[in-house]
């Protein structure tokens, strides 16, 4: 039996900064994961629905525009509505230190800012995704 970690790399909202998301997608692939990338300008509804259809283990939200406080929790809420709150939701991008506690309270498991080594992002997923035997 072969388990593969499946990750949705998603860009919610109007933010067009996609370099980080693409770099992450590539890093996750190189780490042996299957990555679905949404492309830019997706709504939280689209992201949650795709996460369910693709049965991903992780949703990786990237936002550099400053709209993370509304968009990230929205994705978490929608996943919960769909009975998919076992999916790990992590976030990153340009996010002020002060916002991190708020995001964590709202179901974002961890937040990664500019300059985070890719290996740190990969290792976080590896150690937090529970794959049943």
């Amino acid at each position: 039996m072969e388990q593969k970690i499946r990750v949705l790399v998603a860009k919610p909202g109007l933010d067009g900064h996609d370099r980080g998301a693409k770099v992450l997608a590539r890093a996750f692939m190189d780490a042996g994961m299957e990555v679905i990338y949404t492309g830019i300008r997706r709504t939280p509804e689209q992201i949650a629905e795709v996460a369910v259809q693709e049965d991903v283990d992780v949703v990786a939200l990237s936002c550099l525009s400053g709209a993370h406080n509304t968009l990230f929790p929205k994705v978490v809420d929608l996943l919960k509505e769909k009975g998919a709150d076992d999916i790990l939701v992590m976030g990153g991008g340009v996010i002020p230190e002060d916002d991190i506690p708020f995001l964590k309270e709202h179901g974002i498991s961890e937040v990664f800012g500019p300059g985070t080594p890719l290996a740190t992002c990969v290792d976080y997923i590896r150690s937090h995704v529970k794959k049943e035997a």
Binding site: K4, M33, E34, E49
Partner: peptide, 20 residues
């Protein structure tokens, strides 16, 4: 990827119009 076993599954990017 034959090397890592990972993949970037890109077909869906073209399908967002019908995704919902």
């Amino acid at each position: 990827s034959p090397f890592s076993g990972g993949a970037i599954l890109g077909d869906r990017v073209r399908m967002f119009d019908v995704a919902l």
